[in-house]
Design a protein around this nucleic acid. Sequence first.
DNA 1: ATCCTATTATGACGGATCGTCATTTAATGT
DNA 2: ACATTAAATGACGATCCGTCATAATAGGAT
Lengths: 242, 242
Amino acid sequence: MNTKDRKHREMQEREAIILECARPMFIEGGYNGLNMDRLTSMLEYSKGTIYNHFSCKEEIIITLAIQTLEKRLAMFEKASLFQGTSRERIAAIGTAAELFVKLYPDHFRVEQTIRLDSIWDKTSEERRQVMSNCERRCIGIVSGVVRDGIASGDLNLNDSATPEEIVFGLWSLSFGGYSIISTSNSLQELGISEPFQMLRHNYSRFLDGIQWKPLSSEVDYDAVFERVSEEVFGNELQQITT
Amino acid sequence: MNTKDRKHREMQEREAIILECARPMFIEGGYNGLNMDRLTSMLEYSKGTIYNHFSCKEEIIITLAIQTLEKRLAMFEKASLFQGTSRERIAAIGTAAELFVKLYPDHFRVEQTIRLDSIWDKTSEERRQVMSNCERRCIGIVSGVVRDGIASGDLNLNDSATPEEIVFGLWSLSFGGYSIISTSNSLQELGISEPFQMLRHNYSRFLDGIQWKPLSSEVDYDAVFERVSEEVFGNELQQITT
DNA sequence: ATCCTATTATGACGGATCGTCATTTAATGT
DNA sequence: ACATTAAATGACGATCCGTCATAATAGGAT
């Protein structure tokens, strides 16, 4: 069955083409900006063909989200392998999160749109699973490093908190921070000119608050950020600077 | 000119009725759930009349946001007057933020929708100003308490941070936290059963990280939360429990 | 009380967009 | 060359936003 393979491959290639065309349309104007008629006219496929790949608009959007979520997961996995203290490894994942946002600045918009516009309910159970899994695994990676920190003695929560609580804190801080950076203009008014660096410092303050050793007074975590950027994500970084 | 006053009053009353009907529709189905035809048929006014009040759907949505943002501002102002140490006053504002989310659980959805769906651009400059002002003043209140903390000696940033940076941190933490709480189901999977309390604890960890005295090891800020809830927001609280 | 004018209300309609489906076209196997 | 299966097409129905010509109403003058 050689034909079957070929068809399958053609199917995937076409799917990629559709998504490639849909992404800038979505970025441009959000949910309503992604126009199925315009998408049709820009591609050399008819409407029916596109609807053979994606049963509705929402399926396209969730697939756009999955594409980038998978990249983030890969970056998190790479970062968690960084050689260093547990807190340096958390910083490495923070670096991954920041570079991810800079590489795919539109991702937040896609993800939040899915959560908000009753899009979630219209998507297939299968794709929802994929997306949830990505999120879960990202959380799992952070969770693992927190546990490593406890195991190594760098972090001592003495029953005042669970590891999950700390993960929730880091997650809130980064999700909120990146959301504010990418959708609010109040930051400039606040006089914050380097929001990404500020966010990193706020991470450090939170981790100092739970006494995760070594504290930010002992180690220059800005330098760790630079090191991880270069050593672990050198390739990805070129895409930003060029 | 008595008639003019009456007309103006009628205008405002009708505006309130329209919004009252539009809000549950928006909560139910987001931007697309708010259906102008259905809104028309549910009210005793015709389409044209509604469009005399709001020039487009987006104007209705931003007005919904302004309604609740003004409530939040009032709560922040009330909280900032709490008698206590500077850090207790920050905790009081945190309490206000939490109670606000519980009182108006749909607010986040409205606000985020405005930021995302290219709705912002379609709204009137006037209403945008009102909304920005609300946000600015809320930030200003927090900012003021941080400065008070510095002035009183409870907080010493020794040039390692600006007050605005701390505001940004608290803002990220709360915005991210409440967003995650209200739109993600991963928290349950993480085994976090009392997310609001966890978020408060994460606040405390952040403030401990910058050594804002008295530290959470010295004062029971959960108790402060309870006190503020009762003493300052007793009235509002009844709406939740009943 | 009546008429005139300015303001407001109405809802049918044009235009845009989503998703479907009967029909046409192409590909595969004998 | 032909039959059968699979895939592509785009016209169409349905829905929804915002407009505008027309109708209704209110205010004020005589």
